[in-house]
Amino acid sequence: MDKIRDGLAPLRKVPALWWQVGLLAAAILVPIPLGDYYRSVLWRTALYIILGLSLNIIVGYAGMFQLGHAAFYALGAYTAAILNLYLGVPLLLSLPLSIIIPGLFAYIITRPILHLRGDYLCIVTIAFGEVVRLVLVNNLFGITGGANGLSSIDRPELFGLVLRAPIYHYYVVLFFLVLTIFAMRRLEHSRLGRAWMYVREDQVAAEAMGIDTTHAKLLAFVLGSSWAGLAGWLYAGKLTVISPDLSKFLESVIMFCIVVLGGTGSIPGAFVGTLGMVTLPELFRPLKAWRDAWVGVSMVVMMVLRPEGLWPSRRVQMEIRGEKEEALAAPVNPAG
């Protein structure tokens, strides 16, 4: 892997802007020669990158376990569907609420449990994901459609154009993906981003430095969950059929794996992770029954060979690799 990286070194000399423009152009052009199936695969890939990036705020930046992320994804989709089916709100107009409502739920749910440490927090989030799924299955207030979910949601309409073909949806999702990446990069380098980094590294020290750690962690949850709601909204717009399966535990696990396998805290990592967890299994559909085995094996191999993920953020790589080197160097490094 590192050899490959060295081999790619000359490519690093190309200015970053060229890369960005080139990749964006490629992303726009790629679906044109492809058929609808592959266009849908591309759409799915971009959607899961958004989901991965949204979870990355919570897991990567703020360093908290969240294994119930799919619940907020489902909440975003259901918000859009319910507004559309019962109140006749066009899909495009339901976007703000599809973002706000999951964020609100995240606030209510995580506020009382923020003081929990890693593994305990993780258990509570798993439970929350399952609770949301069961509530949806049990047809809350008779509006969630039970186990069958909700169907025949109106297709989104943009300036009179009904978005039906997969390629339109791909471009919509691509637009939001670019927006997400831009936002994440800004967030990473913002004051809040730094606060998250300090909280992740050492909570007590962060608190002693004047950071409101509860507030910082809460913001990570609310922002990440709202973003997942956005992905849910995108999903509802394309599929027009949604079911409680959106909040399945496996969905949360896939999102978590995207973040961890790709590289915690890293934006390109979410791309690589999605490729491995979503796109490849989709393309090798005949082998799909083997997917769970593939996930398991790749997890074990990764943890042994590359614990920091495929495309880690430099910081996390230093943390994981550095510890080993420090441990080796410790005996010859006396204090003082």
Binding site: Y198, E201, A205, M318, G322, E326
Partner: peptide
């Protein structure tokens, strides 16, 4: 406060 035991962020 300067905490006990040099609690710096070693990866920063």
């Amino acid at each position: 406060q300067v905490p006990e035991g040099r609690q710096i962020f070693s990866t920063l």
